[in-house]
Design a protein around this nucleic acid. Structure first.
Length: 476
RNA sequence: GUGGCUAUCGUUCAAUGGUAGGACAAUGGUUUGUGGUACCAUGAAUGAGGGUUCGAUUCCCUCUAGUCACCCCA
């Protein structure tokens, strides 16, 4: 009865763009003229909004959970094996924490942060990445006194107000690993090894690391100067966007995809040539370690990461499909200055994050098997009120004995219940009807052979287990 | 934030300026306490709002969402 959509009185909220301005309290603004904004809620009915997840937000449905479960398990196992301890930090932090650490000129902060003011007047933001919050926790809880390196692992959602596409969402999941207190390049190598370990354990092939070193702040400044000098001289050959970038983040010009920019930057100065002695040694030793570990890497002198806090080593993890198309799965790097710049004791650190949504996407794309939940092999069918009551008890009784039970208590006929049992592919069905309920017995039916026998409650568990066991042997 | 493409039952695919059809899935049934197959039946959709029109799911506009390319990144 799709009742012809009650003609709702619709106040035509047309016109009145612009002049939104600030409207401090908007106390005089009448209901209907309030909030024309362009939040676009205008033409969307309340009900419609209720039935739709926010843009870029999505549900991870039961069908997908096996993949996620496998990813989570791989992550936590690897974390354990490499001695990482789990830490969970709040999703919301002071916005300032992120601007301080990630950098104010970066896109992440400039236009992708979910920031808002709380009722108490605090400027806060949903975390766009993990490291800032973890660094904050590290300092706040005085973790600097712990034996080095301090290894912390996290998994959870992060938020970026970006334009969604496949594999990129506004709420997405990351697994994050950080090590504090150790500056030796072997940690860099170990970090990359760990990342490789996780990803390949998940069955992803064609993994490649791209690495680069951007040196310490001083050498980086030197380099930036040289780069600007070079680009400035041929400014008119750059695309418009890159010309703008010259002033704010010249290094980003390096990964512009415009042909003319690429051509121009081929011969541009490279950060590697401007490294200070220490960074140079660091990078050299890292490469030696990577060779030793036989990890698949290429040096990408154009690789610049979007966060300001990186020093020395930066890297990204890529996966490629048959057509050679590449997908970024994660990245990371060293951030020796971050802790100190946030107000802590000078502490070198390195870490990386993995994009879980993308990993799941890749797993599906390359047909990696998801994690299989243990599946019920026994079905419990019942007939009649009395049997229903008994079945509930039987259900928990069997479960206590480690037997997973499927059921469809809501159904009436035995036929339909058996049909469900069949579809679920169970090996045994236990049937309790009126008669059995009275006798305190149950029918145990072997779904493969079709034979069945009536047993007492005491013998029930054994009878079921016996069938399951012989099946197992047969499947061998 | 910019530009392109898209939008039909839960899923997938049809069709039309004039009552939207199939397949898969779902639910019930084929004498009611026994599975498969088959057969029958049932429920289920034109994303939202406006415009043009006698009439719009179809044409136009706006919004929303998805997707792709930028941007950026995971």
């Amino acid at each position: 009865m799709p009742q012809k959509k009650a003609a709702v009185r619709k106040v035509s909220a047309r016109g009145q763009k612009s002049q939104v301005k600030k409207m401090p309290a908007a106390k005089t603004a009448s209901r209907k003229s309030a909030a024309p904004k362009k939040t676009s809620v205008q033409n969307v009915s309340q009900e419609e909004m209720l039935l739709q997840a926010l843009r870029g937000m999505r549900d991870i449905l039961p069908d997908d959970q096996p993949y996620w479960e496998r990813v989570r398990k791989a992550l936590t196992h690897a974390a354990q094996e490499y001695g990482f301890q789990r830490i969970d930090t709040p999703i919301v932090e002071y916005a300032h924490l992120f601007t301080r650490s990630i950098g104010t000129e970066t896109d992440i902060v400039e236009k992708e942060m979910y920031s808002f003011v709380t009722r108490g007047g605090d400027k806060v933001a949903l975390r766009p990445e993990f490291t800032a919050g973890i660094a904050r926790a590290f300092i706040q809880h005085g973790m600097g006194i712990l034996p080095k390196p301090v290894k912390l692992f996290s998994i959870g959602p992060v938020y970026r107000y970006d334009r969604p596409q496949e594999g990129r969402y506004r709420e997405f999941w990351q697994g994050n690993f950080d090590m504090f207190g150790e500056s030796d390049p072997i940690l860099d190598a170990q970090t990359i090894q760990l990342a490789y370990r996780v990803v390949s354990q998940l069955g992803l092939k064609n993994i490649e690391f791209q690495i680069n070193s951007i040196g310490m702040p001083e050498s980086r400044r030197e380099y930036e100067k040289a780069l600007i000098r070079y680009l400035e001289a041929q400014k008119n050959k750059l695309c418009q966007h890159c010309r703008d970038r010259l002033a704010t983040s010249p290094m980003r010009v390096l990964d512009c995809k415009e042909d003319k920019c690429i051509q121009l930057t081929v011969h541009a100065p490279q950060s590697l040539d401007y490294l200070d002695q220490e960074s140079r040694d660091h990078f050299k030793r890292l490469l030696e370690y990577l060779d030793e570990l036989e990890l698949p890497y290429t040096i990408n002198t154009r690789l610049v990461r979007g966060l300001d806090y990186y020093t020395k080593t930066v890297f990204e993890i890529w996966s490629s499909d048959k057509e050679g198309k590449k997908y970024s799965l994660g990245g990371g790097g060293r951030y020796d200055g971050l802790i100190q710049s946030l107000g802590g004791e000078a502490t070198p650190a390195i870490g990386f994050g993995l994009g879980l949504d993308r990993i799941v996407l890749e797993m599906k794309r390359t047909q990696v098997k998801p994690y299989q939940e243990p599946k019920a092999r026994v079905f419990l069918a019942q007939l009649g009120d009395m049997a229903k009551k008994k079945s509930l008890r039987l259900f928990s009784e069997l479960e206590k004995n480690g037997i997973l039970i499927a059921e469809s208590f809501g159904r009436g006929s035995l036929k339909s219940q058996l049909r469900v049992a069949n579809r679920l592919g169970v090996e045994v069905t236990i049937i309790v009807g009126q008669k059995e309920a009275l006798d305190e017995t149950a029918i145990v039916k072997d779904m493969v052979s079709g034979t069945q026998e009536t047993v007492t409650y005491e013998r029930l568990v054994d009878a079921v287990k016996k069938i399951l066991k012989t099946n197992q042997v047969l499947q061998g």
